[in-house]
Measured scan of single mutants.
Amino acid sequence: TEYKLVVVGAGGVGKSALTIQLIQNHFVDEYDPTIEDSYRKQVVIDGETCLLDILDTAGQEEYSAMRDQYMRTGEGFLCVFAINNTKSFEDIHQYREQIKRVKDSDDVPMVLVGNKCDLAARTVESRQAQDLARSYGIPYIETSAKTRQGVEDAFYTLVREIRQH
């Protein structure tokens, strides 16, 4: 089974770092803004072998026109913010609204991801993020692309959301 996953969120929150940590098991430290990259990885989730087709997208506003296209083809979405960047957390709402509009559905598989949880300088409390996820009816997972904490959990949870859909 193949799953088309799309990673969305503001610029600099760590979308590529999360994806590369999942696929290649290493942490990319330097920031190089993405336009669009796709990665494929075969994994076993709950005993089922599946192929993850992951689209890593641009957070930069100037590429926002490309969003409709990949939102149409994606089956599930990782909505990523950084726990030390309140603005990126506030941006999640717009991504969710755009996904709902493009998919013409209120019920699209999504996982809210709070990345950079290895950093002490948190400005978005776990509780705020949990409340937001609960209001959307989606899971919330904290990750660190640096330490790998929660990385597999985030992507695998999204696959489970798609399966249950």
Rank of each mutant, 00 (worst) to 15 (best):
A145F: 02
T57V: 07
I83W: 07
D104W: 06
Y3I: 11
S144M: 06
H93M: 15
K4L: 04
T73Q: 15
R67G: 14
R72L: 09
D118V: 03
M66N: 12
M71K: 09
K146Y: 14
A129Q: 04
G14W: 00
T19V: 11
D37A: 00
V102R: 06
E75Q: 12
Q60N: 15
D104T: 08
G47E: 07
R160Y: 06
E125N: 10
C79P: 01
V113T: 02
D46I: 10
P139C: 06
I23N: 15
I35Q: 02
R134N: 11
F81A: 07
G12C: 12
A17L: 01
P33S: 02
Q21A: 13
V43S: 08
H26V: 07
D106M: 10
R72P: 11
I83T: 15
V159G: 03
R101I: 05
Q98M: 15
F27W: 14
R160L: 06
C50P: 07
Q164D: 08
K15T: 03
V6P: 02
A82P: 04
T143E: 02
E161C: 10
G12F: 12
T57K: 02
Y63G: 11
T123W: 06
A82M: 11
A17Q: 13
A120Q: 12
K100D: 05
P109L: 07
N115K: 00
H165M: 13
I162Q: 03
T34M: 00
G76L: 15
T143M: 15
D131A: 09
R163P: 04
T57P: 02
D46Q: 07
Y156P: 04
N115S: 14
E2R: 02
A65R: 10
E152V: 11
L132F: 13
A129H: 04
K100Q: 12
Y70F: 14
R67W: 14
D118I: 01
L55Q: 04
G9L: 00
A121W: 05
N115R: 01
V108G: 03
I138C: 09
V159T: 05
E152W: 08
A121P: 13
L55Y: 04
V44S: 10
E30T: 05
G47A: 07
Q94E: 13
L52D: 02
I92T: 05
K4V: 04
G59F: 02
E30V: 04
I20V: 12
L22K: 14
T73I: 08
L52I: 11
D153P: 04
N85K: 10
D106W: 12
R148F: 14
K100P: 03
L112S: 01
K15Q: 01
E62D: 15
D106S: 12
V151H: 15
M66E: 11
I99N: 02
Q21M: 11
Q98S: 12
S135P: 03
V44A: 07
V43G: 09
Q164R: 11
D46C: 09
S64W: 09
R127G: 08
A129Y: 07
A145G: 14
D37Y: 00
I162W: 04
G150K: 07
R67V: 15
K100H: 09
A133I: 08
N25C: 05
S144V: 12
V113E: 02
K41T: 11
K146G: 15
S64K: 07
Y140N: 01
V124M: 09
V108L: 08
V6Q: 05
T1F: 08
C117A: 12
L158F: 02
N25G: 08
S144G: 12
D131T: 06
Q164P: 06
K146A: 14
G114L: 08
G9S: 01
P139W: 03
I99P: 02
K87S: 10
S88Y: 04
E125S: 12
R96L: 15
F89G: 04
N115Y: 02
K41N: 14
I20A: 04
Y136I: 12
R96Q: 09
S105P: 06
L22G: 10
R127K: 14
R148T: 12
A82F: 00
L51V: 14
Y140W: 04
R96M: 15
I92D: 02
A145N: 09
D53Q: 03
L52R: 01
D46Y: 06
A121R: 08
G47Y: 04
V7F: 06
L52G: 02
Y140K: 00
G59L: 02
R40T: 10
H165K: 14
Q98G: 10
E48F: 05
D32L: 03
F155N: 01
V43F: 13
D107G: 09
M110R: 01
V13I: 15
L22C: 14
D32N: 03
D153V: 06
K103V: 09
E125K: 05
R160C: 10
N115C: 15
I45A: 11
G150V: 11
L22S: 13
C79S: 02
I23R: 02
D107I: 10
V7G: 01
H26L: 15
Y156K: 15
K100I: 06
E142N: 04
M66K: 12
V44R: 10
V13W: 00
E161R: 12
R122S: 13
L78C: 05
N25E: 11
Y3N: 06
D118M: 01
Q69Y: 12
L18A: 11
F77V: 07
G150W: 09
Q69S: 12
V43L: 12
K100R: 14
R101C: 09
M110G: 01
V80C: 10
R40M: 13
L18S: 06
I54H: 00
I54D: 00
T1L: 08
Y95M: 15
K146H: 15
Q60I: 15
I162F: 07
I141V: 11
G11V: 10
V80K: 00
I83H: 15
G74L: 05
H165S: 12
R40D: 01
T157K: 14
H165T: 11
V7L: 12
G11P: 06
I20Y: 04
F27S: 02
S135E: 11
T73D: 15
L158I: 15
V111G: 02
N85L: 12
R101T: 07
T19N: 09
F77Y: 12
T19S: 13
G74Y: 10
Q24F: 02
Q94D: 15
K41D: 07
G74T: 12
K103A: 08
K41P: 12
S88F: 08
I141W: 04
K116T: 08
T157Y: 12
L55V: 08
Q69N: 14
L158K: 01
D53T: 02
L112G: 01
V6F: 07
T73N: 14
Y39E: 00
